[in-house]
């Protein structure tokens, strides 16, 4: 029983990280149609920035973390303006910016290695590594932080899309780009904000994860893969899909790892099998996109 409760916490924690990564894909994908595989490197860069703001400059946690996220959001917006927008405006097929962003993965990674080195760097946690005792189990403090912050960010993004006019505007751009333009929605601004927002969201995942593991220039790729799997499982349409996909992926990983009578080396491959299965059986994921009636 203790095991199940501990696993529940573990699933919520990992699910939160995966959901944030999936969301980072989503906020760029929907308005622009671009699958941005560089989300993992955004998480890496934010982790390194937090090493600087929280570790080197010793800022208090919230300003330091926010500054790190602002930095990576700026990089997201700059990337959009410098590499994606010229392609879109020249009428390039959608594959072109996707490939450019794949190239940016390498650029970001090398920049991180050059700027911060190839060693693992420590990222301070906001509330330390203590435990919250709740009856039969103790929840690690950082796990609680991850669950809370990812939950808030996911709920906030959902509220943005569903309850504010600018969120509706982003949806409108996703539904019909030309019509959205005719409404007077500034398409360039939407694209820039979607990249900045995606970067900030991926950055949050990085800053939440790094205190437990470290900031490391190779940490981006696994996060990008997990996020993409969660996105596919949950459905590429909506925030709810990201949350569900993240939780399903995390639950599958952890339950298989804990209880399946197979060597853990094989258990590692199970979630990817799950994603393949989903793509075969239900390409739209668990929750269909809103655009489909």
């Amino acid at each position: 029983m203790t095991d199940l409760l501990e696993l529940a916490v573990s699933i919520l924690e990992a699910g939160g990280i995966y959901a944030l990564m999936a969301l980072a894909y989503l906020v760029v994908l929907r308005p622009t149609g671009i699958i941005n595989f560089a989300v993992g490197e955004w998480a890496t860069l934010a982790s390194f920035f937090s090493v600087a703001t929280l570790g080197w400059w010793n800022l208090p946690y919230i300003p330091g973390a926010v500054l790190a996220l602002a930095g990576v959001a700026a990089i997201g917006a700059l990337t959009e303006q410098a590499t994606v927008r010229p392609m879109i405006e020249r009428g390039a097929p959608i594959l072109t910016p996707i490939l450019i962003l794949l190239g940016m993965v390498v650029v970001y990674r090398e920049a991180a290695a050059l700027g911060f080195g190839t060693q693992n760097l420590r990222v301070p946690p906001p509330l330390g590594f203590g435990r919250i005792d709740l009856g039969p189990i103790a929840i690690p403090m950082q796990s609680a932080v991850v669950i809370a912050v990812s939950g808030i960010m996911l709920a906030g993004t959902w509220a943005f899309f569903e309850r504010t006019i600018w969120g509706k505007a982003f949806q409108a751009v996703a539904i019909d780009r030309v019509a959205a333009g005719l409404m007077g929605i500034n398409l360039r601004l939407v694209a820039a904000f979607s990249f900045a927002g995606g970067a900030a969201i991926a950055g949050t995942a990085g800053v939440l994860q790094a205190p437990l593991t470290s900031a490391h220039y190779l940490m981006g790729l696994p996060l990008a893969i997990k996020g993409f799997s969660a996105l596919v499982i949950g459905g590429v349409g909506r925030v709810e899909g990201c949350i569900l996909g993240g939780l399903v992926l995390a639950a599958c990983e952890r339950l298989v790892m804990r209880y399946a009578p197979i060597p853990s080396g094989f258990a590692i491959g199970v979630p990817l099998l799950l994603m393949i299965l989903f793509l075969l059986v239900r390409p739209t994921g668990l929750i269909g996109a809103r655009g489909r009636t």
Binding site: Q171, A179, M183
Partner: peptide, 30 residues
């Protein structure tokens, strides 16, 4: 386009191009 709308030109495009998944109110709001 967004600047042109601001100047007082509105378009009802061919095929209507309403935002189908959003509500009537949301469409108007946009």
């Amino acid at each position: 386009p967004h600047a042109i709308v601001a100047m007082g030109v509105a378009v009802v495009p061919e095929g209507r191009r309403i935002f189908a998944p959003l509500s009537v109110l949301d469409n108007l709001h946009l």
